[in-house]
């Protein structure tokens, strides 16, 4: 990393850590993971050990919003002017935000894993289910890295849309309703959506309701989701020259 980009990343992290809503969303993400893990084991399927641990990625809506705040928040508060005065070429600012977003997302993913793993162990023990499966470490890795990518995805969406409220609304409605509807009802299509791919990366293997279908293999899901994140980042970088008035 060049010194210049290093300084920009440090600046973005300084701002991210100082933003209360970002900190709250990271914590909320871990809470969501704990709630979903509980539901998965106690309500859905106590035998799917991998899916239970993979709930460590279920905080993704909160983490994605945190990512959106990191970029669109600068337009909302008009602070992007300062960033572009320091770095008038602008693209390095997006690059630094992506790196900072990945770091925030990685932190969120690790926090979620630290909360989810012991909770799932206790829950599985109460159900007399096996506590471990050889696929669990990879599912956890997929969950943590997937969470980091969700934050990056949010950074890119926020930089593209710029209007913070609109970016949050569009991202939530799309991932929750459009993508989950596809995953549930048209899994052949749904598994290729960002949510479908990210879920696959976290070790989620089946679609139970209401149409039978399968998701991508974990590695393929990870690659597809990485692809989405990179395309979103590229679009954000390509549109960064728009006027700031």
């Amino acid at each position: 990393m060049s010194g210049r980009l290093g300084g920009l990343v440090a600046a973005e992290l300084r701002k991210a850590v100082a933003t209360r809503s970002v900190r709250l969303l990271v914590v909320l993400g871990a809470v969501l993971c704990a709630a979903w893990a509980t539901v998965q084991v106690l309500v859905f399927d106590p035998d799917d050990v991998v899916a239970a641990y993979g709930m460590a990625q279920q905080g993704y809506p909160a983490v994605m919003i945190a990512g959106i705040l990191l970029s669109a928040g600068e337009y909302r508060h008009r602070t992007v002017t300062w960033a572009y005065l320091v770095t008038p070429t602008r693209v390095p600012v997006i690059g630094a935000k992506v790196v900072a977003g990945a770091a925030v997302g990685l932190g969120a993913g690790l926090l979620a894993a630290v909360v989810t793993v012991p909770l799932v162990m206790v829950l599985l023990a109460t159900r007399d289910a096996p506590l471990f499966d050889p696929a669990v470490p990879l599912a956890l890795l997929g969950s943590v890295l997937g969470t980091a990518l969700w934050c990056v995805f949010g950074v890119a969406v926020g930089a593209l849309v710029r209007n913070q409220s609109a970016a949050i609304a569009v991202a939530l409605l799309w991932t929750f309703y459009a993508e989950w509807t596809l995953i549930m009802l048209v899994p052949e299509v749904g598994r290729w959506t960002p949510t479908g791919a990210a879920k696959a990366a976290s070790g989620w293997t089946r679609v139970d309701l209401p149409v039978a279908g399968s998701v991508l293999p974990a590695w393929a899901g990870a690659l597809v989701f990485l692809g989405y994140a990179l395309v979103a980042v590229a679009l954000a970088g390509a549109t960064v020259r728009r006027d700031v008035t």
């Binding site: 600046a11 701002k15 008009r78 602070t79």
Partner: peptide, 25 residues
């Protein structure tokens, strides 16, 4: 100085300035 209102309301003056310092090295 372009807009006197262009600050993140949740950041302190020091955070705002230190982030600028870091970015500008």
């Amino acid at each position: 100085v372009l807009e006197s209102t262009a600050f993140h309301p949740g950041h302190s003056a020091r955070v705002h300035l230190e982030a600028l310092c870091l970015a500008a090295r």
